[in-house]
Design a protein around this nucleic acid. Structure first.
Lengths: 147, 147
DNA sequence: ACAATATAGTTATCATGGTAACTATGTTAA
DNA sequence: TTAACATAGTTACCATGATAACTATATTGT
């Protein structure tokens, strides 16, 4: 993700808001700030993931399986839905994660179309390995932000 | 951009924070919320831009040129730097924007390597056309968010 | 029962982000 | 002056997001 490093000034946004009869310039300024901050945070996190040979998408896949109460697997479509990513991207990502033995997939016994996706033991271990650094990275970023 | 639609619960984040000795679980929760909200807002904005045959990147290019005080053009590298995007992506994007006559480029008179990028009249008009809807979209999104 | 429809996943293809390596131009220092 | 280095932009290539169209399976309504 990318965004403006320097946001428009408050006066500028207020000027636009007046011209376009937008009622809440402060909310707009907040949204722009949010997008910029997220863009910077995502750059940090991408760097962290990449250093560990993974990606935000792979990480989220592992997280949503791991955090599921009562079940130890999810359908591919459920994962895609929870992460808000298209199914073709999910297909490709899951395939590569199976190759790397982070997850295991098998056809659902009660629906021949669906695939159950579970974490392997090494997938679980890997997730536990990278989680602390993920939280630390976010925590550090937020600390810098509020300076 | 994509992200978890359902964030981990506060208890869950606090549990992680404790295990990984992260001091400020609230800040982490805030960061996750920020990423989710931004991801949803970006989806809205992408839809808006796409409806108008443009993209967030093209929009930001026009914005940073338009808002520049004193000057009516910027170097390609200045634009890339301000939007935090790589130079090869800038090259490609500017090329297509020249084809669509939104911008004009010419070699800088004082540095044969550099290219000056200016908005054309129709680029300026187009920017003014889409700006109100952009602000409205952000404003509406933020209104929904604070419900 | 079975035709029509819906759903899960995949394939093909495109769009758009990135890095590495290159060319051309400019700057600096021996 | 000119060799070494720095900088602007481009090219080549890869990674990863999307949509459309497809296959296979399941469900629904007559």
């Amino acid at each position: 993700m990318f965004f403006l490093k320097e946001l428009p000034s408050q006066q500028m946004v207020e000027g636009y808001a007046k011209r376009f009869s937008v009622k809440d310039p402060t909310a707009v300024q907040g949204a722009l700030t949010m997008m910029r901050d997220t863009s910077l945070l995502l750059r940090e996190l991408e760097g962290y993931f990449s250093k560990h040979g993974t990606s935000q998408l792979r990480f989220l896949v592992m997280i949503v399986i791991d955090r599921e109460p009562q079940r130890d697997s999810l359908l591919a479509s459920e994962i895609a839905e929870r992460i808000d990513v298209s199914r073709p991207v999910m297909t490709r990502t899951l395939k590569s994660m199976v190759e790397d033995e982070l997850i295991a997939m098998e056809t659902n016994s009660s629906d021949g179309r669906a695939k159950c996706v579970a974490l392997t033991k090494s997938g679980e271990n890997f997730l536990q390995e990278i989680l602390p650094g993920y939280f630390k990275a976010i925590s550090n970023f937020m600390k810098e932000l509020n300076k």
